[in-house]
Design a protein around this nucleic acid. Structure first.
Lengths: 184, 184
DNA sequence: TAGATGTTTCAGAAAAAACTGAAACGACTG
DNA sequence: CAGTCGTTTCAGTTTTTTCTGAAACATCTA
């Protein structure tokens, strides 16, 4: 039912899953869908992966909440079929977007909240460190938002231009660090 | 011993840890070190976090394997003290580097290996998909390697130039896709 | 070398996460 | 409405991961 090639790919993503925050079955289901030209339904996955029906159901729900799978329907068939988007770039964008939402945004919120706190003297260093972290994250996410606006073609072109981009960076004027002093 | 502010930060990173592949104690220890102006020793952390000595020991080892903490020694004191690097950028670089090593590189290896396989007809689609994934990952990591070469100052300047970078991308010539045909 | 101080290891306990089967549910269909 | 087909939920079990305390180890010091 499943060629060695696909088997191996699927198992790899199952294992890999645990290094991310993803559980094995979710990883395997995603991998199976990714490699399948045809949409698959829950029972297909049960057969392919040998896990329980309910596990498949839960895992698909999880994948849907990540917007990583698409629901398809066949005319005259009540079952839900699933695929991954054809466009790999779309997949990457979704993945980054969702991870940002779940991993970065809550942290940013927390950091801002801690920063606001009227700080006792003993916390001066900690608060400075928190600010530093917040600023860095904002810089990175802000930049990411910019990149995300580009259409895929331009983005690919940009990524392909590693060397040229380096040159561009050379020309970038480095702004003096902002200090607390009011400099005139 | 631990102000509310720091307490909260530490707990947040403990929770957050699980969304990454990191366990709670590891996250908490890292957070505690991050906020501490002074290096801390294992027993300090036991006191601060209320976990067992051996847990702290294991977790510190884990953090060391990630190169996320630095060992310090005080003259005339046999104990190991730990800090996080002062430079946030260094932290980010390390983090990305290590995650790449653990999460991307093994996958890339596996993908290449599967791609080489003499493909049976039924695997044609799967293999095409694998190639697509491999190429995309290579593009992204290749680009990352370029960025990683920049000194921090230039990198920051570049990141701060979101808008300008967009314009730059506009000007980027979009190269025609490479095909198998030998074009003259 | 005996003792003091600090770190690491490891087998088992505790906690958390993943998974299952069975039952509930929902929505069409004759 | 009764039956069919498919999905979802959930209490309980299994598996995995994390954590602990005790013992082993290592190094310095009197």
């Amino acid at each position: 039912m499943l060629s060695d090639l696909r088997q191996e790919f699927i198992l790899h993503f199952g294992e890999m899953g645990s290094r991310w925050g993803i559980n094995r079955t979710v990883g395997q289901i995603y991998a199976a869908l990714f490699l399948s030209e045809e949409p698959l339904c829950a029972d297909d996955l049960v057969g392919l992966l040998g896990v329980s029906r309910s596990n498949v159901s839960m895992s698909l729900k999880e994948l849907q909440s990540w917007s990583l799978v698409q629901l398809k329907h066949r005319p005259g068939d009540r079952r839900d079929f699933f695929t991954t988007p054809d466009d790999m770039w779309q997949i990457v964008r979704t993945l980054v977007e969702e991870r940002k939402k779940r991993e970065i945004d809550p942290t940013l919120t927390k950091l801002r909240q801690l920063e606001m706190r009227p700080g006792s003297a003993e916390d001066a260093y900690a608060q400075a460190r928190i600010t530093e972290m917040r600023e860095l994250i904002e810089l990175l996410t802000g930049w990411y938002d910019q990149m995300n606006k580009l259409e895929t073609e331009r983005l690919v072109a940009l990524l392909n231009m590693g060397a040229k981009l380096q040159k561009f960076a050379q020309s970038a004027r480095i702004l003096p660090k902002r200090t607390n002093k009011t400099e005139n």
